[in-house]
Design a protein around this nucleic acid. Sequence first.
DNA 1: ACCCAAGTTGACGTTAACGTAAAGGTAATG
DNA 2: CATTACCTTTACGTTAACGTCAACTTGGGT
Lengths: 126, 126
Amino acid sequence: MANTTYSISDLAAEFDITTRTIRFYEEKGLLSPKRIGTSRIYDSANRTRLKLILRGKRLGFTLEESRDIIGMYDPTHGNVDQLQKLATGIQQKRQQLELQLHDIKAMIKDLRDAENKCMQALPTTD
Amino acid sequence: MANTTYSISDLAAEFDITTRTIRFYEEKGLLSPKRIGTSRIYDSANRTRLKLILRGKRLGFTLEESRDIIGMYDPTHGNVDQLQKLATGIQQKRQQLELQLHDIKAMIKDLRDAENKCMQALPTTD
DNA sequence: ACCCAAGTTGACGTTAACGTAAAGGTAATG
DNA sequence: CATTACCTTTACGTTAACGTCAACTTGGGT
């Protein structure tokens, strides 16, 4: 199984970000690639995490929020009490996202209306 | 018609933000309330604009983006050429929003999955 | 052996979006 | 008439998320 790996500039090119950005995410504890010598080596799991970080960014989340959210994706952390807290944390984030979903839909509708008004104000080609 | 007006602290209280924030938005050209003496007086139109700004903020937009978007809501700007550019601007923003909509839905699904895994890992009460 | 592209670690700079005093004006209330 | 409660402007401080050098090492290709 040829486990594909990536250099830092591979990922930077793929996602159209700088290497500085990727290192910054690592500095903030969002990524922790393996090393060969001093060079960072990213596997597909790292790449996925990066994608999730960027998705969070597009949605306006801070890096800290994204880190928390990504932390919710694997229930590796055994303890029952921890799992309870995790579950409620997940539910809260989901609620927030539902609100955001509502906001976006409203905004899209507003823009559709604006577009229509705009079209009506324009001369028709007939 | 008792045109309702608001003081700056009225709006700050209603939307749970500081007066500083509201003044800052004005500084950035997002609001322009009337004045009585030196005091700012907001009408319902100003209040609506503020609501739109905050919605934009919840969606991760910069103030500049929000200002542009809000500017799309009224086709007051007569010229045909301007209207054409406005229309395409609106369409672009809408496309961006559709992408964001997609991102949000994906994230909600991820969180639902995570919630399920979490529940399965928890002991049932039977 | 030499070069170059790509990697590394600091460290300081920058921008957006406010926070946080400081210093003062004004209007109503006790 | 003095205090309290809001309002104002001006100005410096702060945090997140990188940008931007600088100075250095390192693995391949010719």
